[in-house]
């Protein structure tokens, strides 16, 4: 193979790799398997979503059988009715057109 043919083949092969690499990179902009992931300044940190576990019922948690021994006094629950009196005027109109 002549020197000219070798040069032409090298140029063609290099251009193929260049354009092929461009096409591949353009279609795979973000590679999750990339070895380096530079930190992005100002990026929004996504916090973990709250768990879907049900909220425990306090009355069940504080049953004597499940209560763990503790030196501090336990929480005090206010069991007074939620509806209370107020000094505001009575509501006489319930519909606004």
């Amino acid at each position: 193979m002549s020197a000219f043919a070798l040069r032409v083949a090298a140029v063609v092969a290099s251009l193929l790799v260049l354009f092929g690499g461009w096409g591949y990179a353009a279609t795979h902009v973000k590679n999750p398997n990339a070895p380096l992931k530079p930190p992005v300044p100002g990026a929004v940190v996504v916090e973990a979503a709250p768990s879907a576990a049900p909220t425990p019922i306090p009355s069940l948690l504080n049953r004597p059988a499940l209560r763990l021994p503790s030196s501090s006094p336990g929480p005090v629950f206010n069991l007074a009715p939620a509806v209370q009196t107020t000094a505001l005027p009575r509501i006489t109109i319930t519909h606004v057109s």
Binding site: S14, L18, G21
Partner: peptide, 17 residues
């Protein structure tokens, strides 16, 4: 970013040759 990746690949290949 894309140019850096494509030229990196091509220069590495040409360096191999």
């Amino acid at each position: 970013w894309i140019a850096a990746r494509a030229t990196g690949l091509a220069s590495y290949f040409a360096l191999c040759l």
